[in-house]
Design a protein around this nucleic acid. Structure first.
Lengths: 143, 143
DNA sequence: ATGCCTGCAAAGCTTTTGCAACGTT
DNA sequence: AACGTTGCAAAAGCTTTGCAGGCAT
């Protein structure tokens, strides 16, 4: 996933590569972790708020970013593939990491057997402390 | 979980049992499945919208209901315990069922080993078709 | 009698939409 | 030149807050 791949995805779908869009794509790529619509808007004073939302929607459709909800429901975006994956959300710094392995098929089969529910998709969000914040906490406790 | 247990929970915390609150508690209990704030408001014309939200917040704090997000982020409430559990959301009728068994500890341990992320909580939402909607679909296909 | 609760209306936020002007192709 | 795109401002949802009056305890 690179700036170029985002640009290519837009070209393929015949979306125009305008100034505001290129600025947004660049900013999205700079962000190593997740971001909100408001943060993007704040970082790009000359891009309208509506354009930020319109472009985020576009990137979602392209599958170039994904949207997730914080524990309190706040929507947050994250660059990355649209392939099946889940999220580890650090409750201290808010950073989000992806993970793909989810061995819950046997659990879903058991659910189907017990309740008749036929699962077609699932979403797992794990909350906790990332490695960095754990280290920081340990350090602070020593002070 | 019954109407009485909700009332008791409020009494314990010394919350006043007013008319609007009792009406809301009754309506929440009548609902077998999930509900939105707006639905509650629509069902109780003489209770103010603000009171609906204030009471929902209260019940959340008491742990008498839980809040979850639909796939599109729409917040939905559901009566039930505050104990650890997850949700099966029917994408056809919107009904939500709980389930408790989540054998993902080994997955979390693997994550901790691979990424250093220390999980403290998690949330699993499974989307699919409930037993009723599956049956209905089969029936419709036969027509 | 106290002070928690209520409804209403207004304000707050986030997101969407209408529209005339603009810029990419 | 055509028309997709933009910024602005207004609108639209949803939720919270301020306030004067009301009600449970």
């Amino acid at each position: 996933m690179s700036f170029q791949s985002l640009v290519s995805a837009m070209e393929e779908r015949r979306y125009k590569l305008t100034g505001p869009r290129l600025k947004l794509l660049a900013t999205v790529m700079e962000r190593g972790h997740s971001f909100t619509a408001e943060e993007l808007y704040a970082e790009l004073p000359d891009v309208g708020r509506a354009t930020v939302f319109r472009t985020l929607k576009l990137l979602l459709e392209l599958g170039s970013i994904c949207k997730l909800n914080m524990d309190d429901g706040t929507p947050v975006y994250r660059r990355g593939t649209s392939a099946h994956h889940h999220h580890m959300v650090c409750t201290s710094c808010g950073r989000v990491q992806d993970f793909a392995r989810c061995d819950i098929d046997s659990m879903l089969r058991r659910l189907a057997g017990a309740t008749g529910f036929k699962a077609s998709a699932h979403r797992i969000e794990v909350y906790g402390l990332c490695r960095t914040c754990q280290a920081r906490k340990v350090k602070e406790e020593k002070l």
